[in-house]
């Protein structure tokens, strides 16, 4: 038995040496969850039926799949990828595994921007992602200024506490706005926890643009990202302008988070759970970390959403609540490990 286990480990180790093996595994996971997400819902459909209905426009389920389930799957995948990569970038920027767009208040900042636009300038909703981006970026700047001490990495406690403080202020503003303008604010409860309910192709397009721009920029920035993992003096000694790199990468992280917030509200914990899990498996290098986080984040959100839609059928739960249920304990375990 022992020898068998050792042999499995050895083969596992060898398989992991093959480039692309990890990516293939995670992509497989994504395919399965995407499939499951399109099958499951308020109406139950058999796999064969789904394929037929997608192809056949005379099928009564054709419209349900094309107008409800598929855009929702696409949105979910993009939200997951964007938040997960945003988290990975923020973790590198502050050199701390506890960073996450939700925990640091970046999504709340983006949400505040979005809400202000929706309430006061309802005609300008196509600028939603742009305004959300500004809100998220301002929050990052605020946070880094609060937590920064020159020449030192930001300790785990410091970053978490600064995030809590910033987030409390942002949530206060968010609540004040929705109370004062209850008639104009969108479904606030589901916005606060994060939900994919009722998303269509317009929403998919809204998030697709910032997500693809953000992911491309992040992948272009691979090498500086890797250098940023070293302490400031070493990174500077290698010729990286640490300050400008930090600003640029924070901007990309804000853009990704803003895209996700614009369609799905304040979905939390994806950016914390996925990159940290990937790092255990694939190491800290961004060449693997970013693609794996993107695909893994998409898979996680789709799986959570599939569960959210089926757990209390026909009631559709907000996906953010389910993610927080998983993410909270994971966050605690990380905090214990890193602070102790």
């Amino acid at each position: 038995m022992k020898r068998f286990a050792a042999a499995v480990r050895l083969r596992g180790a060898r398989a992991r040496e093959i480039p692309g093996f990890r990516l293939a595994v995670v992509c497989g996971l994504l395919a399965v969850t995407a499939g499951a997400a399109s099958l499951l819902g308020a109406l139950e459909l058999a796999p064969g039926r789904v394929l037929r209905a997608i192809a056949d426009s005379s099928d009564p389920m054709h419209a349900v799949l094309w107008d409800v389930r598929l855009p929702r799957v696409v949105c979910g995948a993009l939200v997951g990828a964007a938040l997960s990569v945003s988290g990975a970038l923020l973790q590198t920027v502050v050199r701390n595994p506890l960073a996450d767009p939700g925990l640091l208040g970046v999504t709340a900042g983006a949400g505040l921007g979005a809400l202000v636009l929706l309430i006061f300038f309802p005609d300008l909703t196509r600028w939603l992602p742009g305004v959300a981006f500004i809100g998220g970026a301002v929050t990052i700047v605020l946070l880094l200024t609060l937590a920064w001490r020159p020449g030192r990495a930001i300790g785990p406690l410091r970053i978490v506490l600064s995030g809590v403080a910033v987030q409390a202020m942002l949530f206060a503003l968010l609540s004040l706005l929705t109370f004062a303008y209850a008639d104009r604010a969108p479904a606030f409860a589901s916005f606060l926890v994060g939900s994919l309910n009722g998303l269509g192709w317009t929403d998919a397009l809204t998030i697709a643009v910032p997500t693809f721009v953000g992911l491309t920029l992040a992948l272009v920035y691979l090498r500086p990202l890797d250098v940023m993992l070293l302490d400031d003096v070493s990174a500077g000694g290698l010729g990286l302008s640490v300050r400008s790199a930090r600003i640029a990468i924070s901007g990309v992280a804000a853009l990704l988070a803003a895209g996700a917030v614009s369609v799905a509200g304040l979905v939390g914990f994806v950016g914390l759970v996925v990159p940290n899990a990937v790092r255990v498996w694939a190491g800290p290098g961004h060449a693997l970390l970013l693609p794996l986080s993107a695909v893994g984040g998409a898979a996680l959100v789709l799986a959570a959403d599939a569960a959210a839609r089926t757990a209390l059928r026909p009631l559709e739960l907000p996906v953010g609540a389910l993610l927080a249920l998983v993410g909270g304990p994971y966050f605690l375990s990380l905090l214990w490990r890193k602070v102790a």
């Binding site: 050199r95 990495a153 993992l229 070293l230 302490d231 003096v233 070493s234 790092r279 255990v280 190491g283 800290p284 290098g285």
Partner: peptide, 9 residues
Amino acid sequence: EPVGPEGLT
């Protein structure tokens, strides 16, 4: 005291 990330080979 240079610092690198956990898991860096």
